[in-house]
Simulated assay, not measured.
Amino acid sequence: MLQKVMCGYTTPVSKFKNNPNAALLEAQGDAIAVSSNNRVQFYVVPAELFEEMTAYCEFAQRGRADLQSIPAHFTAEGVDMDKITTGMAIKIKNGPTNDYDECL
């Protein structure tokens, strides 16, 4: 079964458990997909990137800024970030739902 990886770095959970700081340093501030049995189990995001993503979503939720004008440097090669973030902003703006599917 194929699985889309939403970032440029992956590591097995066993290697991540042994030295999580080394994995974060190697990714140089980008997110890391941590896998087990060839399936992504979770993503690790450095604090600075998480804060930036949170601010990005908050600005979009308030409707105070166009998504294109919010300074952000997080990217994922081969992934349409505009489509993902616009979907996230629409879901946030429309209020709470029981829909926890991907925003794609």
Rank of each mutant, 00 (worst) to 15 (best):
Q3E: 15
K15D: 15
V44H: 06
G95I: 01
V79T: 11
A65M: 11
E48T: 06
G29L: 11
Q28S: 13
A33H: 09
T97Q: 10
S14H: 03
M1I: 10
E48F: 06
P20S: 07
E26L: 12
P46C: 09
Q68M: 00
L2V: 12
A76H: 06
F59T: 11
S14A: 03
D101T: 15
R64W: 14
G29K: 10
K83Y: 08
A47R: 13
E52S: 15
L49H: 02
A23R: 12
T11M: 03
G78S: 02
T86H: 07
Y9F: 10
C57H: 09
G63E: 10
E77C: 00
K17E: 15
K15A: 13
A33K: 10
Q61T: 08
Y100R: 13
V13G: 00
A65W: 10
G78P: 04
G95M: 02
K17T: 12
N18D: 14
I84Y: 10
M81H: 01
H73F: 00
L67M: 01
L49Q: 12
M81C: 09
Y100F: 15
N38W: 08
L2I: 11
F50C: 10
D82Y: 02
I90K: 10
D82F: 11
N98C: 09
I92L: 13
P20H: 09
K17R: 15
A33M: 11
E51C: 06
G8P: 02
K17I: 11
R62C: 02
N94Y: 03
M6H: 07
L49N: 05
L25K: 15
A65K: 06
A72L: 02
S35A: 14
Q68A: 05
V79S: 08
V34S: 08
E52Y: 06
T86N: 09
I90P: 01
M53R: 15
E77S: 03
F42E: 03
Q41A: 04
N18S: 14
A55D: 15
V5W: 03
A22I: 08
L104Q: 12
K15R: 14
N38D: 13
Q3T: 10
N18W: 11
E51Q: 14
L25C: 15
A47G: 02
A65L: 10
F59N: 10
A55P: 03
N19C: 11
H73N: 01
Y43V: 04
G87M: 02
G78I: 07
T11W: 00
T10N: 07
P96H: 02
Q28C: 14
T75A: 00
S36G: 12
Q3V: 04
P20R: 12
V13S: 05
R64M: 12
